[in-house]
């Protein structure tokens, strides 16, 4: 806090960054890009559920609640990781390491948003969806951020469950149930997460080394990471088409998952054979496109009536 005596003026002193924080700095705590993926997958979860969406008004409000929940968990994650975010180039520009937002305020924002998002979803989507959202936030913050992230190279494998839950929450919000087909969408994102993040960690292992985060390349080496990416890619490419056996997907999804899966495998194979991690950036970028495209196809199928 800048303090001056009556005889001094504040302009004589350097202004602490948090005194000039803009609302956009607080919005950045919510990781809008990650939030957008949660919104999209949750929306797809709602649309692919059997039957027409009972009320689009409630569905949109449920989507907003899920988005707020995703933002809340991001703010709490930034609060918890504020000691290491400043050490990594990828996260050094976040509002807390920059001094724009005090860590305690990020914590407060995260807690308030968590409570409001769960409450809103309970009203708009029912108690099952709200409970699942609460579990998602708790899993991401407590299980992933607090326990797994700094302890084990399997952090993102187990922690990926939090990122995989939004379509299940969406499904629950419109149906009040979570049958096996909802968990098939969960499985798709859950298995997609390791090759996606390990490709990134190959590129950013210096960052993780500096922060002491035991990502797979730092603990087991690049060769093991490339091999694990390959293994998980095979599992992903084999799992994705299986969703077509459920009524929520159709032939267009099946064909897309095979074509996109072949390209995923090709990139993972090229990366596996490279000594200098060439192709890691390409695989990382393609993995985002892959997941987005598959969920988009599910959405299109439902609007066009191709599913089931």
């Amino acid at each position: 806090m800048t303090r001056t005596t009556m005889s001094e003026t504040a302009t004589d002193q350097e202004i602490p960054a948090h005194l000039t924080a803009e609302p956009s700095d607080y919005a950045a705590l919510l990781k809008p890009r990650v939030m957008s993926l949660s919104i999209f997958t949750a929306l797809v979860g709602m649309v692919v559920a059997p039957g027409p969406v009972p009320s689009w008004g409630l569905a949109i409000l449920s989507t907003i609640a899920i988005a707020l929940g995703a933002g809340a968990s991001a703010a709490l994650n930034m609060w918890w990781d504020s000691d290491i975010d400043g050490l990594m180039a990828r996260t050094a520009k976040r509002p807390i390491p920059q001094g724009k937002v005090p860590a305690a305020e990020a914590f407060g924002l995260g807690i308030v948003l968590s409570a409001l998002s769960v409450w809103l979803l309970a009203l708009s989507g029912g108690y099952l969806a709200a409970g699942l959202l609460a579990i998602t936030i708790g899993f991401y913050v407590v299980v992933y951020s607090m326990f797994l992230k700094r302890r084990t190279p399997q952090n993102i494998v187990i922690g990926g469950a939090a990122g995989a839950l939004p379509p299940v929450v969406g499904y629950a919000a419109v149906t009040g149930t979570v049958p096996l087909e909802a968990w098939a969408l969960f499985a798709l994102i859950f298995i997609w997460t390791p090759p996606h993040f390990w490709a990134l960690s190959l590129l950013k292992k210096g960052d993780y080394e500096a922060a002491g985060v035991p990502m797979l390349p730092n603990v087991k080496g690049d060769a093991v990471t490339r091999r694990e990416i390959w293994r998980y890619s095979i599992l992903l490419v084999l799992t994705a088409p299986l969703i077509a056996f459920f009524p929520l997907a159709g032939w267009l999804y099946a064909a897309s998952s095979i074509v996109l899966g072949a390209e995923f495998l090709r990139r993972a194979w090229m990366l596996r054979g490279s000594e200098d991690n060439k192709g890691a950036a390409g695989l990382f970028g393609f993995s985002i496109l892959y997941l987005f495209a598959l969920f988009l196809v599910l959405l299109v199928e439902h609007w066009a009536g191709f599913h089931g």
């Binding site: 806090m1 800048t2 303090r3 001056t4 005596t5 009556m6 003026t9 504040a10 302009t11 202004i15 005194l19 000039t20």
Partner: peptide, 9 residues
């Protein structure tokens, strides 16, 4: 003591 906010603040 008091804090006199600047225009930017």
């Amino acid at each position: 003591e008091h804090h006199q906010p600047t225009e930017a603040e």
